[in-house]
């Protein structure tokens, strides 16, 4: 794994470190919120290791803590995570083949997919994907455990503005790809559809609906030079 750090430039490495840190703080709040809502400590801790998908975990714990059925919570969570199919198709050459596909798939998050797609060549892409994936996995799980143990110390990450930091992180990561006109049009149409559908559809579906925006996408100039 040392080669990952040699391959990554200092700039991306620092950005990845920052996102890992921020994810750790959100993990802290996730652990604290879960335990604060009366769930035993093992629930957020186990979920974070075996599911490892922040938004869907918040949803799962929210439904269960509100007295909802764990089965309903599971279905909602899987729905929210369905976008990973498209991510997997886009970054499979970055993950690599053989045994790497198993940990590489488990480490797939919005953040490391966006980091990978933002790099220029395939070596940088691979390094960014794995470095961000491993870093976020470690920080997230440490954060969740610490937050769960600390209980109700940080339950309100909104006061720190972290709820605004996350969309901003993803926006900064996708902006370079949006300089391509056709990709931008597809993304704009898709986002509008997702926003309009949010009040009416269960969580997770509106974002998937955004794929309809691809009707406006034309493969001409490489939007993202997918290196082979």
């Amino acid at each position: 794994m040392r080669s990952i750090w040699r391959t990554l430039d200092r700039g991306p490495a620092r950005d990845i470190g920052l996102v890992c840190l921020a994810d750790g703080v959100v993990g802290l709040s996730y652990g604290a919120i879960s335990v604060g809502n009366g769930l035993p400590l093992w629930v957020p801790v186990v979920l974070s290791i075996v599911v490892f998908a922040g938004a869907s975990q918040f949803l799962f714990v929210g439904i269960v803590a509100a007295g909802g059925s764990p089965v309903a919570a599971m279905i909602a969570g899987v729905l929210v995570n369905s976008r990973h199919v498209a991510f997997g198709l886009a970054v499979s050459d970055v993950i690599g083949g053989g045994w790497r596909r198993v940990p590489g798939s488990h480490l797939m998050t919005d953040e490391n997919v966006a980091f990978a797609l933002g790099q220029d060549d395939v070596r940088q892409r691979r390094a960014a994907y794995w470095a961000a994936g491993i870093g976020i996995f470690v920080c997230w799980n440490v954060g969740v455990l610490a937050g769960g143990l600390a209980g109700t110390v940080i339950t309100d990450t909104d006061a720190l503005g972290l709820d605004a930091a996350f969309p901003a992180v993803l926006l900064a990561l996708v902006l370079p790809a949006l300089r391509d006109k056709s990709t931008r049009t597809a993304a704009l149409v898709g986002s509008m559809l997702a926003l309009a559908a949010t009040p009416f559809l269960p969580a997770g579906l509106p974002v998937l609906l955004a794929l309809v925006g691809l009707l406006f996408y034309r493969v001409e100039k490489p939007a993202l030079e997918m290196a082979r």
């Binding site: 498209a86 970054v91 993803l170 949006l178 993304a187 955004a210 691809l214 939007a223 993202l224």
Partner: peptide, 9 residues
Amino acid sequence: GAAAIVLLA
């Protein structure tokens, strides 16, 4: 690649 960007956006 564009599909992933649309989802992230």
